[in-house]
Amino acid sequence: MKGLHYHYQVPGDDFTRAGEASGAIKAALKKLGFSPQVVRKVAIAMYEGEINLVIHGGGGEIDVDIDGEKVTMVLADHGPGIPDIQKAMEEGWSTAPDNVRSLGFGAGMGLPNMKKYSDEMTVESVVGEGTTVTMVVKLV
């Protein structure tokens, strides 16, 4: 079977809507009866990614593919890009401006958490062009 595909546009700078896409995917996974562990991993990884699109990427797009073996999430933005991906992966490292931090975001746990909760993660980024993060959560 070809599997399921979902596409979301995430608007930039609207914190009140961040989490809508990951929320919809979470609901879908529960309908599929996937294990609570898988739902939790996808929910956390995708929510973090969605927040990143809002804070850093100026919005972007999320594509989610679900097949019988895995959930693949591709999050793409046309934001400033990440100059040093290695550094961005360190826990606590953050570029978030104060107005974002005061909202409780920008603790420097975004990418580390995405890596922690996904089974595979790749980050492709070009400064000035944008960032694409691909995450895979396996079902077994």
Partner: peptide, 22 residues
């Protein structure tokens, strides 16, 4: 866990149903 929200116990069948739902 009481999985009352799931569409089918078989995940492949559930995916088909979810697609049809869409």
């Amino acid at each position: 866990y009481a999985p009352v929200m799931q569409l089918d116990a078989n995940p492949f069948r559930a995916m088909e149903l979810l697609e049809q739902m869409g």
